[in-house]
């Protein structure tokens, strides 16, 4: 079994006396789309920030591509951060820059290239995420929600990362845009061999894209394939996946098993 891309061991995160994660351990394999699910307050964002190196856990280690990021100094960590791409829940595009400038920014900061090469690279990223080229000169305030999400993904892909972190990528998108985004993520994973860690509430996205899912519950994590999770006995998991909105997931599972 090849070495996992991300390896989290015994992560403990606490805020004062409140413990959010109490010994969370899991691996993310290369090339998989790894979903992270949990109720509000279960610490999904905190976990994501821990994996990204934005937060040092109170104890435990995180290894990314074999390097222990929890033990690294800030400058070394910055180099690692260039190896992955991140999208944030509300896009987090720089509002005073155009779309083209946003997408070009990681490249501009990492190296010196002439304008023509930069423009071509921006065009590449826009095409990859399905944005029209005439959107390049627009400011984030002029873009629709779906376009902002795609633009954020374009920026995350700017340095051809091997690893992609998506925080609620389909939140706020209409079903058509959300489905298109799912297909995009799958396509990119298949063609670029990316590893994707996705925090999401969207059951349709989970069913369509994720190879394995980590459920944050009771300050620990349960990791399994989606069918395995759906069958899990834990009361919260049962309510999450078998409640009124769980139809898609259980139906998808039936398709896999029954087809």
């Amino acid at each position: 079994m090849p070495a996992p891309v991300i390896s989290a061991r015994d992560i403990v995160n606490r805020f004062g006396s409140q413990v959010v994660h109490d010994g969370v351990s899991f691996d993310v394999q290369r090339g998989e789309i790894f979903g992270v699910v949990g109720g509000s307050g279960s610490g999904k964002s905190v976990l994501l920030r821990t994996l990204l190196g934005l937060r040092r856990p109170d104890s435990g280690t995180v290894e990314v591509e074999g390097r222990v990021i929890t033990a690294m100094a800030e400058t070394e960590l910055r180099e690692i951060k260039r190896r992955y791409g991140v999208t944030f829940q509300h896009g987090a595009l720089f509002t005073s820059l155009t779309l083209a400038e946003n997408v070009a920014l990681p490249v501009v900061e990492a190296m010196d290239l002439d304008e023509d090469a930069l423009a071509r690279l921006v065009e590449l990223r826009l095409r990859m995420v399905g944005l029209p080229l005439d959107a390049a000169a627009k400011y984030p305030a002029q873009l629709s929600g779906g376009m902002v999400k795609r633009a954020a993904l374009a920026r995350a892909l700017a340095l051809d990362p091997a690893l992609l972190f998506l925080d609620e990528p389909t939140a706020g998108l209409d079903p058509i845009a959300a489905a298109a985004f799912d297909e995009l993520v799958l396509y990119l994973r298949n063609t670029l061999h990316l590893t994707v860690v996705m925090v999401t509430h969207d059951l349709d996205t989970l069913a369509r894209t994720c190879d394995r899912v980590a459920v944050l519950v009771d300050r620990k994590v349960i990791v399994d394939t989606l069918p395995g999770i759906v069958d899990n006995e834990h009361p919260w998991i049962r309510e999450y996946f078998h409640g009124a909105r769980g139809r898609t997931v259980t139906a998808a599972r039936k398709d896999v098993h029954g087809a």
């Binding site: 065009e123 590449l124 095409r127 990859m128 029209p132 080229l133 005439d134 390049a136 000169a137 063609t191």
Partner: peptide, 16 residues
């Protein structure tokens, strides 16, 4: 091949 497909997706638009 992927890039061929990307380039073919929509007619070339000159950046404004």
């Amino acid at each position: 091949p992927y890039l061929d497909e990307l380039r073919g997706r929509e007619p070339e638009q000159a950046a404004p």
